[in-house]
Design a binder for these strands. Sequence first.
RNA 1: CGGGGCGUGGCUCAGUUUGGCUAGAGCGCUUGCUUUGGGAGCAAGAGGCCGUAGGUUCAAGUCCUACCGCCCCGACCA
Length: 416
Amino acid sequence: MFWTKTLIPTLKEVPQEAESVSHQLLLRAGLARMLMAGAYSYLPLGLRVLENIQKIIIEEMNFCSGAQVLLPALQPLELWQRSGRDKDIGEVMFRFNDRRGRKLCLGPTHEEIITELIKNHVSSYKQLPLLLYQIQTKFRDEIRPRFGLIRACEFIMKDAYSFDQDEEGLEKNYRIMYEAYLRIFKRCGLDVLSIEADSGVMGGKVSHEFMVSAKDGEDAVLICPTCKSVMAFKEEADKVCVKCKAHLQKINAIEIGHIFKLGTKYSLALGANFLDAKGNLKPIIMGCYGIGVSRIISAAIEQNHDNDGIIWPKELSPYQVIITALDVTNKDIMEISLSLYEELGALGISVLLDDRDERAGVKFKDADLLGIPLQLIVGKGSLKDGSLELKNRITKEKLIKSRVEILKELAQQIHG
RNA sequence: CGGGGCGUGGCUCAGUUUGGCUAGAGCGCUUGCUUUGGGAGCAAGAGGCCGUAGGUUCAAGUCCUACCGCCCCGACCA
């Protein structure tokens, strides 16, 4: 992509509306813009990051034999009345009437909808176990949306649902999901902590939260400095680690995933039953597994930035390489830049070419702000002997070598 | 919802305390010249119902009232 052909409105100064680091960089790097509190437009760069996260999640869910679906956000309130969650969820759910006066809502989550679907299509133990998932927009009328994408009223979630005939099956699926989550977050460049948690309004017995430590996180957890075990922060919490008796440290964190053993809560309420091998009618045993997809953008920024801007984890970066053409009025520089652009593109490497008619300083600053891990710099200095310059966003090291060697180095950093 | 902060061109802000002529600066934008490896300089421009609505006053960005919006702290959550 050419910079001049897309929309990347970078900001030199910190916008007044943002206080947390991820919120500031989200806006400064031109990833997203606020429409109103809790509702954001994803700009081209932000959307590419979002899609990269989705791609990782889809790969890992498919690896677990999950099958992707897409359920409606628009839902009849009646379904929520039948499960009894209409009252539990209360004002968090957006409600309204259609033209016929029918009561509708926008889905804050999808247990009811998926259970209703399964009820009509699964009736035998032979169809179990089953794992369905979707990546979809959720709506929650939050009391206080904040921190940009971290708590939004409209946000993107991956929600998966497992269906089993017994507790052993659920246990197995839960374990598989747990491991998949660790892989997903690792690939997203996140240092994640898992912690046993309350099930809250979801119901069920056991649940685990996945937290990433972040200075501006909304949640607090207690971590043991020696054995690294983590527990939920409670005011009355014991300040000493049970295992090694070290003093626990309170750190802020962002919750990016939560998995639940639901059991039969929804299958009983909505009548999702199956016949087992002996012909007995039994409720399906369920689990549900959520990831805050859009929230991961913010979490990744919180954990991967410096004073100059974002430093994207490899797999999330909107582009793998940015070519900084230092002088667009110079024919030779542009010729080299374009040929690099073509060559890398042919190798399947995603490239952003900064072809703006801007001074070098502006381009360097913006490249650092965007956080693309590899910067290929084409300028007069490297023109004379046909050499190229490769800057590593993390280490800030600049490597000046021949074109062949630089491209070899670049390929190694991308694939190696 | 309770507590705190803020609202002035696209962005950051000054001006509001103590009301006074035609509302300012920097960045960004347009045009020209110069410059050109870490957010350039000069010159000339474009862009504002000072969040909205009432009120007080000879006079309101500035004072009063109500409302709206955004941010931060608390309950809720991916």
